[in-house]
Simulated scan of single mutants.
Amino acid sequence: MNGGRLSWCFLRASATRCWVAEASRKMSRSGGGGTPNVFDRNMKKKQKEWAGSGHETRKYDYLREEVGSRLADRVYDVARTFPLALEIGAGRGHIAQHLSKDVVERLFLTDISEATLRQNVGGEMKCHALVADEEFLPLRENTFDLVLSSMSLHWTNDLPAALRQIHYVLKPDGVFIGAMAGGDTLYELRCSLQLAETEREGGFSPHISPFTAVTDVGNLLGQAGFNMLTVDIDEVQVNYPGIMEVMVDLQGMGESNCAWNRRSMLHRDTILAAAAVYKEMYGNKDGSVPATFDILYMIGWKPHHSQAKAAKRGSATVSFGDLSKINQSNEDK
């Protein structure tokens, strides 16, 4: 952090257990059920620790930096000062570096990887770092004015429960602004590996994790208790020399697959076949290959009595038909 402004705080185990138990009871009453177990969270932690401990870690930050910048723009669009904010899955703080203390006065950064947090690039506001899992936040109810998350939630086993936790720690009239990979992210790599593996090995296993569809995000936010929802999608395409460079960069980002049913290794012949398929099906004229990332952006507010509410159905005094007549009358003039 700039000027050593990053402070470390570790919650006492007894306090953590108390807060977590309280949160669990309240969220279970609000509809929490059995937890899916798609991803090996311990493996994801190891991947992020490895990615955060190398000497060239920042060379792989280009996607996170771009998404963090776009997400910070959405924070500025709210046109409000947030006394206390939380960023979950913060990594090296690619949102924080774009924020000013005039917008966020105090920021808590959490991540499962201590090594990554210790390399935080940060911003100018006062920050505190806390090692914590996005799937189980040991934080009090109604604490934060703003919760942020960038490129982290797509690795949670239970996204609905994660969104309920975010809603839980927000103050009324607080806002959640997040971004995660979704949609058809890495479809070129997925299809190339599946075709090559089917041809060479008589079947395929998943090498790319499953992603949330943009059409589902609004429903999940609404079910978690948020209102005044905004959901949109950006397509970010990055060109690489070949398939190996795609996979090396994903590993450097800490974005390698961690699904329980993943295959631990690929045969050399399969990789060579996948590289040929990749270039044949998706290759650019200059010999490079594209990798597409669908980034889902979401904004949701915790309800408060001061927020504007939709008018009751049938209360309108002007119909759309009347509006079209008014427009036509203005054009005639």
Score class of each variant (00 low, 15 high):
D269W: 12
T292R: 12
L189V: 09
G122K: 02
Y187I: 11
T212V: 13
K126G: 04
T110W: 00
V78N: 04
I112F: 01
R12M: 02
I295D: 04
V246K: 04
S100E: 05
R64I: 00
R74I: 09
L11H: 01
N330I: 15
A316T: 06
G203Y: 08
S100Y: 01
D332G: 00
K333C: 08
A51K: 04
E134I: 02
T156W: 01
L153H: 05
A90K: 04
V75Y: 08
A13V: 04
R313L: 13
L139S: 03
Q328D: 12
M247S: 09
E201Y: 07
G123L: 02
L159I: 12
V131C: 02
A308R: 15
V147F: 03
A72M: 04
D102L: 03
H167Q: 11
A51Y: 05
G52N: 03
M265A: 14
R70Q: 15
D102K: 09
E199Y: 15
I208P: 00
N330A: 15
Y187T: 10
P138Y: 09
L193I: 14
L159H: 07
L139W: 11
L148N: 05
F211E: 02
H55E: 10
E65P: 06
D61V: 00
H55F: 10
V20T: 15
L186V: 03
S149T: 09
R118G: 09
R92N: 13
A115F: 02
I208K: 00
G34N: 08
